[in-house]
Simulated assay, not measured.
Amino acid sequence: MKVNSKVQESRKPGRPTVDRRDEILDAAQRLYERIGFEKTSIGDVARELGMSPANLYRSFSNRRAIDEAVAKRRLTVIEDAAWRAARQAASDPDAAMHAIAQVVLHEMRRVLFVDGHMNRLCAVASRERWPVVEQFLDGLRGAIRHILFEGQRAGRYCTADVDAEADVIVRAMTPVWHPQMIDIHRDDDLEAIASQLAAMVLRSLRQRVE
Protein backbone atom coordinates (compact mmCIF):
# COMPACT_ATOMS: atom_id res chain seq x y z
CA MET A 1 0.00 0.00 0.00
CA LYS A 2 1.41 3.37 -1.02
CA VAL A 3 1.47 6.03 1.73
CA ASN A 4 0.71 9.60 0.74
CA SER A 5 4.07 11.42 0.84
CA LYS A 6 2.40 14.70 1.86
CA VAL A 7 0.98 13.05 4.98
CA GLN A 8 4.41 11.67 5.83
CA GLU A 9 6.02 15.09 5.42
CA SER A 10 3.45 16.80 7.66
CA ARG A 11 4.30 14.60 10.65
CA LYS A 12 7.02 15.80 12.97
CA PRO A 13 9.72 13.19 13.59
CA GLY A 14 9.55 11.69 17.06
CA ARG A 15 6.01 12.96 17.73
CA PRO A 16 3.02 10.63 18.15
CA THR A 17 0.48 10.58 15.33
CA VAL A 18 -2.23 11.19 17.96
CA ASP A 19 -1.74 14.12 20.32
CA ARG A 20 -2.19 12.73 23.85
CA ARG A 21 -0.82 15.70 25.77
CA ASP A 22 -4.16 16.60 27.35
CA GLU A 23 -4.67 12.98 28.45
CA ILE A 24 -1.19 12.95 29.97
CA LEU A 25 -1.82 16.19 31.84
CA ASP A 26 -5.19 14.91 33.10
CA ALA A 27 -3.52 11.74 34.39
CA ALA A 28 -0.63 13.64 35.98
CA GLN A 29 -3.03 16.02 37.72
CA ARG A 30 -5.09 13.11 39.10
CA LEU A 31 -1.98 11.41 40.45
CA TYR A 32 -0.60 14.61 41.97
CA GLU A 33 -3.84 14.99 43.89
CA ARG A 34 -4.10 11.30 44.79
CA ILE A 35 -0.55 10.35 45.85
CA GLY A 36 1.28 13.68 45.83
CA PHE A 37 3.22 15.76 43.34
CA GLU A 38 6.68 14.73 44.54
CA LYS A 39 5.82 11.02 44.87
CA THR A 40 4.46 10.71 41.34
CA SER A 41 6.90 9.33 38.77
CA ILE A 42 6.88 9.29 34.99
CA GLY A 43 6.22 5.55 35.26
CA ASP A 44 3.12 6.22 37.38
CA VAL A 45 1.71 8.59 34.76
CA ALA A 46 2.46 6.13 31.96
CA ARG A 47 0.78 3.25 33.85
CA GLU A 48 -2.27 5.41 34.55
CA LEU A 49 -2.70 5.73 30.78
CA GLY A 50 -1.65 2.20 29.85
CA MET A 51 1.29 3.44 27.82
CA SER A 52 5.05 3.10 28.01
CA PRO A 53 7.27 5.89 29.41
CA ALA A 54 8.94 6.04 25.98
CA ASN A 55 5.64 6.98 24.36
CA LEU A 56 4.99 9.58 27.05
CA TYR A 57 8.35 11.20 26.29
CA ARG A 58 7.21 11.73 22.72
CA SER A 59 4.76 14.33 24.02
CA PHE A 60 6.87 15.81 26.83
CA SER A 61 10.65 15.94 26.88
CA ASN A 62 10.95 15.40 30.65
CA ARG A 63 9.09 15.40 33.97
CA ARG A 64 9.61 19.14 34.48
CA ALA A 65 7.85 19.83 31.18
CA ILE A 66 4.79 17.93 32.46
CA ASP A 67 4.89 19.77 35.79
CA GLU A 68 5.07 23.16 34.10
CA ALA A 69 2.24 22.28 31.72
CA VAL A 70 0.01 21.20 34.64
CA ALA A 71 0.86 24.41 36.51
CA LYS A 72 0.20 26.52 33.42
CA ARG A 73 -3.17 24.85 32.91
CA ARG A 74 -4.20 25.76 36.47
CA LEU A 75 -2.86 29.31 36.30
CA THR A 76 -4.54 29.95 32.94
CA VAL A 77 -7.94 29.34 34.57
CA ILE A 78 -7.17 32.08 37.11
CA GLU A 79 -5.80 34.47 34.48
CA ASP A 80 -8.87 34.01 32.27
CA ALA A 81 -11.13 34.83 35.23
CA ALA A 82 -9.05 37.95 35.95
CA TRP A 83 -9.49 39.14 32.38
CA ARG A 84 -13.25 38.56 32.49
CA ALA A 85 -13.36 40.85 35.53
CA ALA A 86 -11.06 43.41 33.90
CA ARG A 87 -13.28 43.71 30.82
CA GLN A 88 -16.00 45.21 33.01
CA ALA A 89 -13.82 48.34 33.07
CA ALA A 90 -15.29 49.58 29.80
CA SER A 91 -18.50 50.41 31.68
CA ASP A 92 -17.23 50.78 35.27
CA PRO A 93 -13.47 50.70 36.00
CA ASP A 94 -14.00 50.96 39.78
CA ALA A 95 -16.26 47.91 39.77
CA ALA A 96 -13.70 46.08 37.63
CA MET A 97 -10.92 46.80 40.15
CA HIS A 98 -13.04 45.44 43.00
CA ALA A 99 -14.09 42.46 40.88
CA ILE A 100 -10.57 41.45 39.89
CA ALA A 101 -9.39 41.65 43.51
CA GLN A 102 -12.08 39.17 44.56
CA VAL A 103 -12.01 36.94 41.49
CA VAL A 104 -8.28 36.21 41.62
CA LEU A 105 -8.55 35.37 45.33
CA HIS A 106 -11.56 33.10 44.73
CA GLU A 107 -9.97 31.30 41.79
CA MET A 108 -6.65 30.92 43.62
CA ARG A 109 -8.46 29.12 46.42
CA ARG A 110 -10.56 27.01 44.07
CA VAL A 111 -7.84 26.01 41.62
CA LEU A 112 -4.65 25.86 43.69
CA PHE A 113 -5.88 24.49 47.01
CA VAL A 114 -7.11 21.03 48.00
CA ASP A 115 -9.02 20.58 51.27
CA GLY A 116 -7.99 24.08 52.30
CA HIS A 117 -4.26 23.48 51.79
CA MET A 118 -2.05 24.76 49.00
CA ASN A 119 -1.31 22.39 46.14
CA ARG A 120 2.29 21.17 46.49
CA LEU A 121 3.05 21.71 42.81
CA CYS A 122 1.86 25.29 43.19
CA ALA A 123 4.11 25.79 46.21
CA VAL A 124 7.21 24.60 44.36
CA ALA A 125 6.41 26.60 41.21
CA SER A 126 5.86 29.74 43.27
CA ARG A 127 8.97 29.32 45.41
CA GLU A 128 11.24 28.60 42.45
CA ARG A 129 9.56 31.23 40.23
CA TRP A 130 9.03 28.92 37.27
CA PRO A 131 8.61 30.68 33.90
CA VAL A 132 4.89 29.81 33.90
CA VAL A 133 4.50 31.77 37.16
CA GLU A 134 6.21 34.80 35.63
CA GLN A 135 3.93 34.53 32.59
CA PHE A 136 0.92 34.35 34.89
CA LEU A 137 1.99 37.50 36.76
CA ASP A 138 2.47 39.26 33.42
CA GLY A 139 -1.11 38.28 32.57
CA LEU A 140 -2.40 39.78 35.82
CA ARG A 141 -0.45 42.98 35.19
CA GLY A 142 -1.98 43.10 31.72
CA ALA A 143 -5.50 42.82 33.15
CA ILE A 144 -4.78 45.62 35.63
CA ARG A 145 -3.33 47.77 32.82
CA HIS A 146 -6.59 47.32 30.93
CA ILE A 147 -8.55 48.65 33.91
CA LEU A 148 -6.18 51.60 34.28
CA PHE A 149 -6.42 52.50 30.59
CA GLU A 150 -10.22 52.42 30.74
CA GLY A 151 -10.21 54.52 33.91
CA GLN A 152 -7.93 57.08 32.29
CA ARG A 153 -10.08 57.15 29.16
CA ALA A 154 -13.12 57.90 31.32
CA GLY A 155 -11.22 60.68 33.11
CA ARG A 156 -11.44 58.93 36.48
CA TYR A 157 -7.81 57.86 37.01
CA CYS A 158 -4.50 59.58 36.51
CA THR A 159 -1.22 57.71 36.22
CA ALA A 160 1.98 58.76 34.47
CA ASP A 161 3.25 55.21 33.92
CA VAL A 162 0.57 52.56 33.48
CA ASP A 163 3.06 49.67 33.36
CA ALA A 164 4.71 50.69 36.64
CA GLU A 165 1.32 51.33 38.26
CA ALA A 166 0.04 47.90 37.24
CA ASP A 167 3.11 46.26 38.75
CA VAL A 168 2.64 48.18 42.02
CA ILE A 169 -1.03 47.16 42.20
CA VAL A 170 -0.23 43.47 41.64
CA ARG A 171 2.37 43.70 44.42
CA ALA A 172 -0.14 45.47 46.67
CA MET A 173 -2.53 42.54 46.19
CA THR A 174 0.09 40.04 47.42
CA PRO A 175 -1.68 39.42 50.77
CA VAL A 176 -4.73 38.05 48.93
CA TRP A 177 -3.24 36.90 45.61
CA HIS A 178 -0.05 35.10 46.58
CA PRO A 179 -0.84 31.42 47.27
CA GLN A 180 1.56 31.17 50.20
CA MET A 181 0.01 34.23 51.86
CA ILE A 182 -3.46 32.79 51.28
CA ASP A 183 -2.30 29.55 52.88
CA ILE A 184 -0.80 31.30 55.93
CA HIS A 185 -3.88 33.49 56.49
CA ARG A 186 -6.51 30.94 55.45
CA ASP A 187 -8.58 31.62 58.59
CA ASP A 188 -8.72 35.39 58.04
CA ASP A 189 -11.47 37.24 56.18
CA LEU A 190 -9.48 37.56 52.97
CA GLU A 191 -12.48 38.78 50.97
CA ALA A 192 -12.75 41.81 53.27
CA ILE A 193 -9.00 42.43 52.96
CA ALA A 194 -9.23 42.20 49.15
CA SER A 195 -12.03 44.76 49.18
CA GLN A 196 -9.99 47.09 51.40
CA LEU A 197 -6.93 46.81 49.15
CA ALA A 198 -8.99 47.56 46.03
CA ALA A 199 -10.53 50.59 47.77
CA MET A 200 -7.06 51.82 48.78
CA VAL A 201 -5.82 51.52 45.18
CA LEU A 202 -8.85 53.39 43.85
CA ARG A 203 -8.48 56.21 46.38
CA SER A 204 -4.89 56.70 45.26
CA LEU A 205 -5.86 56.78 41.58
CA ARG A 206 -8.73 59.22 42.14
CA GLN A 207 -6.75 61.62 44.33
CA ARG A 208 -4.45 62.38 41.41
CA VAL A 209 -7.43 63.50 39.34
CA GLU A 210 -9.09 65.68 42.00
Rank of each mutant, 00 (worst) to 15 (best):
T76Q: 14
R87Q: 14
T40H: 05
Q29F: 09
D67K: 07
F60C: 05
P53S: 08
K12A: 15
R87I: 08
F60L: 07
L49Q: 02
T76M: 09
A69C: 12
I78A: 09
P16S: 14
V103Y: 01
Y32A: 11
E33C: 01
L75A: 02
R20T: 11
R63N: 04
R74Y: 07
N55I: 04
P93D: 00
T40L: 06
R34V: 12
N55P: 03
P93R: 03
V77A: 10
D67S: 14
S10G: 10
R15I: 03
R15S: 13
R15W: 03
D92C: 06
V18I: 15
S61A: 11
M51W: 00
V103G: 00
I78R: 12
D94C: 00
R58C: 02
P53L: 12
E9F: 10
P53I: 07
R84G: 13
P16V: 07
R84W: 09
A85M: 05
A71D: 01
R87V: 06
R73Y: 08
E48A: 10
A54Y: 08
A86K: 03
G36C: 08
I24F: 01
V18P: 01
V45N: 02
F37W: 15
V77E: 14
E33K: 13
I42P: 07
G36P: 10
L56A: 05
A27S: 15
S10H: 08
A27I: 11
D94F: 00
R84F: 12
F37I: 11
R63H: 01
D19R: 12
S61Y: 04
I24R: 05
A27D: 13
I100R: 00
A95W: 00
Q29R: 15
S91R: 06
D26M: 07
Q88V: 05
D67T: 11
R11T: 02
V45M: 13
W83H: 14
